[in-house]
Amino acid sequence: MDVVNLDAANYKDLLKRYIDTRDEQSLYGAEQISKSFIKNNVPPEEIVNLHIQALAELYPNLSEKTGHSMNFLLETMISYGMAHQEYQTLREKQLELKTEISVAAGMQETLLATTKPKIEGLDIGVVSVPAHQMNGDYHHFIKGRDGSLGVAIADVVGKGVPAALCMSMIKYSMDSFPEESMSPKAILENLNRVVERNVDPSMFITMFYAQYMPSEHKLRYSSAGHEPGFYYHKKEDAFKEIEANGLVLGVSSESNYERYERYVEKGDMVILLTDGVTECRDGDRFIESEEVLEVIKSYAHLPVQKIVDHVYKHFERLQNFQLRDDFTLIILRREV
């Protein structure tokens, strides 16, 4: 006997027992059977039919009207049965999609992988966590032959698969630039043309590009509409927003990016982030950037990788461990 027939026999016995005693145990049995029905994809009309047959066998003298009413009930269940079947198919499809996306996410991770380079006299910390499977934030480190460090941090407006595809394109365009000879301004201008030509107008990308020269302790940077970062002045123990003007990538093929430069003193920090950090939410309230800075300050005595890890943990908890947006935070600190 297969499971369904076994359930059918069971159903009849339980029904009889319930009608005779009305005990809770039979109802618990009904719950178990119902779960088995669902597991075996038994549609609701079959269950009603099972009920009709059980009734007829148990009580052959039931009124004709009861029989008719049960048939009426059976008819109303047909469409539910169809809906249930489609739901099953959709569930299978959804599982398939989920698997595909996790494979894609793995590929993205390999494609966009970047390692923190070692730069004499500079401590580097980075944390980048996607809100969903695929990351729409992007960051990249490049160590130039002259010992300089290039840091790109970018955010695609939009999430998920499209954003991730877009990021792969950005990464490969950047790889094709003769990086060492290029200033942040030139890099953004080149990327802007690539994005303008290749990406759907509804998609925007913001990027901040910084170059640190350890020999001169100089930071050069340009921004394409990216969330402003912060500069921590050790001597004054104060944060200041890094102001930089520039249009978002891909809006106009003519965009020009301003070049900025500053001297980095010993102990100073450069904080780069995406809006997933500054737009963290505590319940319904958006946090203020000051809160991010306060957390950074409270861990300022630690190595910078520890600082960024602590900041991430802090806001992850604040948001009940459910990120709403991709979260990327990079800190550079001059050590000597």
């Binding site: 469409s79 049965g81 169809m82 809906a83 249930h84 079947q85 489609e86 739901y87 198919t89 959709l90």
Partner: peptide, 20 residues
């Protein structure tokens, strides 16, 4: 394709007929 039907809701329409 499942879900294309405009009037019948989940499971209805021609894909539903195919299943029935």
């Amino acid at each position: 394709e499942d879900g294309y039907s405009t009037s019948g809701g989940l499971g209805a329409g021609l894909p539903g007929v195919k299943r029935l």
